[in-house]
Computed example of a mutant assay.
Amino acid sequence: MSFDLQIKGLRAVVTGGTQGLGAAVVKTLAQAGARVLTSARSLPVQPIEGVTYLAADLSTAEGSDQLAHAILQEWGGVDIVINVLGGSRTPVGGFAAISDEHWFAELNLNLMPAVRLDRALLPAMLAQGSGVIIHVSSIQRVLPLPESTTAYAAAKAALTTYSKSLAREVTPKGVRVLSVAPGWIETEASVTFAQRMATQAGTDYEGGKKIIMDWLGGIPVGRPAQPQEVADLIAFLASPRAASMAGTEYRIDGGTVPTV
């Protein structure tokens, strides 16, 4: 028995949709029948049939404007916006290694693309009286790694707070806003990172994974999440099946954060 998400024909925008979690979200929505447009700084080698790709650097105001303009020109509006774009580029070394440039870069990658795209696309959603916006945050907003992710964690905390405030403003007007906070996801980037940790420690890939899990204080399910697992949660939350869910952050971390 199939589980129909009831999103066939809906217009969905996904940022950062060519790799990792973003690519899994794009594939899941497309397979469920949504019309999907996604962006990244470069186009994928193997695009998904039926998905529209736009090369744009959303860490800049110009890139966000380019994407919003293309969406409104193509569709006139949108039904689902999923902001997956994010990441950490700050060097290790704790607080002293984080320059002003690093701080602004983390905010411009992890917070401002969502703010700018929402500002551009929400008016059409409000005009039609319906829509869903999902922001992908991180458990690091409550579990930062001081050695390497302070700025990233702070930017994600800002994204969650922004999401909460936006939800209070627009949910009564028909637009649901939610956030999803994944733990460690085994994406291409995290595999590369684990391999690097393994090489430095003189161990194999599984040993590298254990090093990262130990940094996080352990993952009770014993492994990182797969991109598809997180994408399935996001697709459900974006669908009419989750019509009563709004203003909340949903954690998917294998039990890493032990508190509610």
Rank of each mutant, 00 (worst) to 15 (best):
M1N: 12
S2P: 06
L5H: 03
T18R: 11
Q19R: 14
L21H: 02
G22N: 03
V25T: 05
V25C: 09
K27Q: 11
T28G: 03
T28S: 04
A30N: 08
A32F: 01
G33H: 02
R35S: 12
S39L: 02
A40D: 10
I48G: 03
I48D: 09
G50Q: 08
T52L: 00
Y53R: 04
D57K: 01
S59C: 06
T60H: 06
E62M: 10
E62Q: 15
G63I: 05
D65A: 12
Q66R: 10
L72G: 08
Q73S: 09
W75Y: 05
D79V: 08
I80T: 02
V84K: 00
V84A: 00
V84G: 00
G86R: 00
S88D: 00
R89M: 08
P91H: 01
P91N: 00
V92E: 03
I98Q: 09
S99L: 03
H102E: 12
H102W: 07
F104Q: 15
N108P: 04
L109Q: 11
L117P: 13
D118L: 07
D118S: 06
R119P: 13
L122K: 07
P123H: 10
A124N: 13
M125K: 11
L126R: 13
L126S: 11
G129H: 04
S130D: 08
I133W: 10
S138N: 03
I139E: 05
Q140P: 14
L145Y: 15
T149L: 10
A151D: 06
A151P: 09
A151L: 11
K156S: 04
A157L: 06
L159Y: 03
L159D: 07
T161M: 08
Y162W: 14
K164E: 13
K164H: 13
S165P: 00
A167T: 04
A167C: 03
T171C: 10
G174M: 06
L178A: 04
V180Y: 06
P182G: 07
E186R: 15
V191G: 14
A194P: 01
Q195M: 12
M197L: 15
Q200C: 01
Q200A: 10
G202A: 02
G202K: 01
D204K: 00
G208M: 01
K210P: 07
I211L: 05
G217H: 07
I219S: 12
P220Y: 09
P220M: 13
V221F: 08
P224E: 08
P224F: 09
A225H: 10
A225E: 13
P227M: 08
V230R: 12
D232V: 13
L233V: 11
L233T: 08
I234M: 03
A238S: 09
P240Q: 01
A242G: 11
A242L: 14
A242M: 14
A243K: 07
A246M: 08
G247T: 05
E249C: 05
R251F: 13
D253L: 12
G254L: 09
G255Q: 09
V257H: 15
V257T: 12
P258A: 14
P258D: 14
